[in-house]
Amino acid sequence: MTHDDLSMDKAFCLHCKHLSSAQLHICPVCNEPLRQRKKNSISRTWALSLAALCFFIPANIFPIMKTLSITTYENNTILDGVFYFYKNGEFFVGTVVFIASIFIPAVKMLVLFFLLLSVKIGSRWRREEKNSLYKAIHLIGRWSMLDIFVIGLMVSLVQFGEIAVVTTGYAAPSFAAMVILTLLATESFDTRLLWDEKGKK
């Protein structure tokens, strides 16, 4: 009848962060239902992470930016951009772009899957470090949208008619969707699950 995993009689309101008695069921401050864990956390995280992973593929294989100018007609994938910077000696910028656009989304998804699997098997191994990992991806995940901002700016600014026009490729919406989905997936993961005993809910 009672939840095994409610180890304590206190409940932390996920909405207003007010700690109140678990018996109340409803947060006395913000009137939100009190929950011990995020709703459907594992399932949602799985679904969103997988969706993000789906978008990761077109985001990287299709051109993110199409440049049309009188001299050139170019389709650039994200990796093309990275290579471009490296080729031109801009290692720092190339690295930033690579980390922000490819490495971080990929790492985020990997971390999420790792955490999900950890919860699944109920591993108790290095739970603190896992928590830190989560905090890290939660913190840096939003910066991945930088790419989209840059492209958005480029597309809106570089509209010089015959001389140069920049348009977005398939990768851009895919990339944006991927970043949003990883953010949502990260958000939907409840780190407290890492501490829950396996089979002991």
């Binding site: 939840h3 409610l6 409940a11 678990a22 069921h25 409803i26 239902p33 009190l34 929950r35 011990q36 709703k39 459907n40 399932s43 949602r44 679904a47 969103l48 997988l50 969706a51 993000a52 992973l53 789906c54 978008f55 593929i57 077109p58 895919s174 969707a177 989905l181 939907s188």
Partner: peptide
Amino acid sequence: GLRKEERGISLVWVAPIVAILIT
């Protein structure tokens, strides 16, 4: 807040399906 989580397929699984379709 204490209700037992619904089992079965959550609506959130639409997201990866849509993602796969789009890709």
